[in-house]
């Protein structure tokens, strides 16, 4: 048991203590986590982003045009200012322009490719079921027509497909949550107490 492991285990237990009830140990851990996480990002971004993309081009490569985006970036600072917050819009919109690319690309990957593979020959029960499921759910999300009568019955089939889909997601969600807890208990029992080999 090293000091490092001891600290990590103590802080792990601080967070777990919340399960009993809210208490000062948990609050201490929570606030420490927020501070360390943010403090951690600053030198990392300075070294790996500011130096190579701002400092080096301007001061070492003398590419002075980079001063303009650097000033644009600096305008972020005014985000919380009462009178000058509009200045912070400039760095935001510069990055936002790329959504222009997402229009054709999302259309391709999320819609067209999915539709193409949904149009397989209906030669076995599974492809028929997939076809029925996809179509009825799409109809279910079509809100311009009231879900009544025969149309309501068709969209209701979509609901059953969705319930199975949500059930599958739910089963996997349980799995994921349990896995994360297993990881922490493996740390406490294995790395900290040395009981797992």
């Amino acid at each position: 048991m090293t000091l490092s492991n001891f600290v990590a285990a103590f802080l792990t237990l601080c967070i777990f203590s919340f399960l009993y009830k809210e208490n000062p140990f948990y609050r201490f851990g929570e606030h420490l986590l927020v501070g360390v996480s943010m403090g951690y990002a600053i030198p990392l971004i300075y070294d790996t982003v500011f130096i190579p993309y701002v400092y080096r081009p301007i001061f070492l490569d003398h590419n002075y045009i980079i001063i303009i985006p650097a000033v644009l970036g600096f305008l972020y600072v005014f985000r919380y200012s009462k009178n000058l917050s509009w200045l912070a819009r400039y760095p935001i919109v510069f990055g936002m322009g790329i959504v222009g690319m997402s229009v054709p690309m999302s259309m391709h990957s999320q819609v067209l490719v999915q539709m193409k593979t949904a149009m397989l020959p209906l030669d076995n029960i599974n492809t028929i079921l997939i076809f029925i499921g996809t179509v009825t759910i799409l109809l279910y999300f079509f809100f311009s027509k009231a879900h009544k009568g025969a149309y309501g019955k068709v969209t209701n089939i979509g609901v059953w497909f969705m319930m199975i889909g949500f059930g599958a997601s739910f089963g996997y969600t349980v799995m994921a949550r349990i896995s994360l807890l297993i990881g922490r208990i493996q740390f406490l029992l294995g790395d900290f107490l040395g009981l797992i080999k």
């Binding site: 490719v113 999915q114 193409k116 089963g171 996997y172 994921a176 896995s179």
Partner: peptide, 25 residues
């Protein structure tokens, strides 16, 4: 992570994903 698994099945069928490692399993 397992949370995201069920949502990504359509990508497997279309071949947009070559494969998928699903959670701890």
């Amino acid at each position: 992570t397992a949370v995201m698994v069920a949502d990504n099945y359509p990508y497997l069928q279309t071949g947009q994903l070559v494969g998928m490692l699903r959670g701890l399993k």
